[in-house]
Design a protein around this nucleic acid. Structure first.
Length: 425
RNA sequence: GUGAGCGUAGCUCAAUUGGUCAGAGCACUGGACUGUGGCUCCAGGGGUUGAGGGUUCAAUUCCCUUCGCUCACCCCA
């Protein structure tokens, strides 16, 4: 048997219903906020991600699916969507549109990691980006929209919004130095991994979970104290607007995100229900990134939602038979009856009525049994007698009541009853 | 990349210290019931016990290797 490769997964019909719900909710919410869909390729030149995400990040150093195509060009299956989206923004001159330019996209991402609960090698994200505007009210509304999305799915109560500001190109380097200095002074008390990591990416040391490191790290200088006046004001405004929208959050000055490009506002939605992979969504501001990728000096902010993780939080589908039930099950008895019912089935389906059709080679009993198992509301029986009279028998599967309908009227009759049923529910 | 746990039918799981152990339930198909379902009863199909090797008279069971899955570390969605 050929099996799926490690870390990828099939979304079977029973699960697909949840996915449709998540994606449908996203479209509805995002579009209400003025976001438009953009569809992007799933692979790009490797260079785009190396530059956009940051050479020293885990993603670029060890998680990318990179290969040479037949022309010898290095390409990579996208590990995240922002770099691709910004590339498209620059390439197609989308910055000429009124700012902020608001875009969303969804689809598969690829990271070469060991799979575990809520973590896959091919996983799916919903991505939102607002480009060309750095007003703190935009930050607050982007976060507000993210929260609104989870409210619409009735999941907001099980999530916690964590918020931080990382400073900008001016003040972050200063903080970095100050932190590094502190870490060096206390290196002896830190675990081997922290000591190894602090030179490469000192901010990341802050969320080390080794208990022995905690006292030292908890006493480390906070980014908050190091923010320059502009960043401090920006962050204060963001918080004020969130308060105005009554969006609760937790300040977490140890929240450091894994992609290098984040500045100022960063945030994460976490849950206690998914084991170790507790982030359901995350994002932040990335002023400077568009310019770094060769575009105009436009600021930007965005977030990504992990669809698998959202789906894991969603309640299981309702009881009973899963999947779609046919409205009617057509039972021909014999080949002539089958020939008579084939066009009826086609006509009914053309009116969006889901019907299923037997082959006429089984006993009525077993076909009715099948109609019952499929959950059909109606069974339509056409045997030799009915055919001779040009009629069909309609059987109400719930009550067992039956009546006859002229064959030429059958498709219309089914469509009519389908409408009645639908308007009632 | 590191560590731990687990691999028996499509699914959920049984099978004393190695000794009819290759099974049950669900699902599927058929029959009881010649053209009238839901309940019940009966029958059937379907497994190289993840794979390979070893120990033994005998391995689903013990040992080794390997593959896979799961969880955790790391990191993140």
């Amino acid at each position: 048997m050929i099996r799926a490769v490690r870390g990828v997964h099939d979304i079977l019909p029973a699960e697909a219903a949840k996915w449709e719900r998540v994606e449908g909710t996203a479209r509805r919410v995002f579009e209400a906020y003025g976001y438009e869909e953009i569809r992007l390729p799933v692979f790009e030149r490797t260079e785009l991600f190396a530059r956009g995400i940051g050479e020293v990040t885990d993603i670029v150093q060890k998680e990318m699916y990179t290969f040479l195509d037949r022309a010898g060009e290095a390409v990579t299956l996208r590990p995240e969507a922002t770099a691709s989206l910004l590339r498209a923004y620059i390439e197609h001159g989308l910055h000429v549109h009124p700012k902020p330019v608001r875009l969303y996209t969804m689809g598969p991402m690829f990271r070469y990691e060991r799979p575990q609960a809520g973590r896959y090698r091919q996983f799916h994200q919903l991505n939102v980006e607002a480009l060309g505007d750095d007003h703190p009210a935009l930050d607050a509304q982007v976060i507000g929209m993210l929260v609104e999305f989870f409210r619409a799915l009735e999941l907001a109560g099980r999530l916690q919004l964590q918020l931080n500001s990382l400073g900008d190109a001016k003040c972050r380097p200063v903080y970095r130095e100050r932190l590094l200095e502190y870490l060096r002074a206390h290196a002896a008390a830190l675990c081997a991994e922290c000591r190894d990591r602090m030179e490469r990416n000192p901010l990341r040391v802050l969320d080390c979970k080794t208990p022995a490191c905690r006292p030292v790290l908890d006493a480390a200088p906070s980014v908050q104290e190091a923010l320059c006046d502009d960043c401090r004001r920006h962050f204060a405004d963001v918080r004020e607007y969130l308060d105005a929208m009554a969006i609760p959050y937790v300040l977490n000055d140890r929240l450091v995100r894994g992609l290098d490009y984040y500045v100022r506002t960063t945030f994460e939605l976490t849950t206690a229900e998914l084991g170790a992979q507790n982030a359901v969504a995350g994002g932040g501001r990335y002023d400077g990134l568009i310019e770094l990728l060769g575009g105009p000096p436009d600021p930007g902010i965005g977030f990504a939602i992990g669809i698998e993780r959202v789906v894991l939080l969603l309640p299981p589908p309702a009881e009973g038979r899963e999947g779609r039930k046919p409205f009617a099950f057509l039972i021909p008895l014999g080949a002539p009856a089958l020939r008579a019912l084939l066009p009826v089935a086609t006509a009914a389906r053309a009116s969006a009525v889901t019907v299923e059709l037997g082959y006429g080679d089984r006993k009525l009993r077993s076909e009715l049994e099948r109609a019952n198992r499929l959950g059909a509301a109606w069974a339509v029986i056409v045997g030799e007698t009915e055919l001779a009279r040009g009629e069909a028998v309609l059987r109400d599967m719930a009550s067992g009541a039956q009546h006859t309908v002229a064959l030429p009227e059958l498709a219309r009759e089914l469509a009519r009853r389908f409408e009645v049923e639908r308007s009632r529910s």
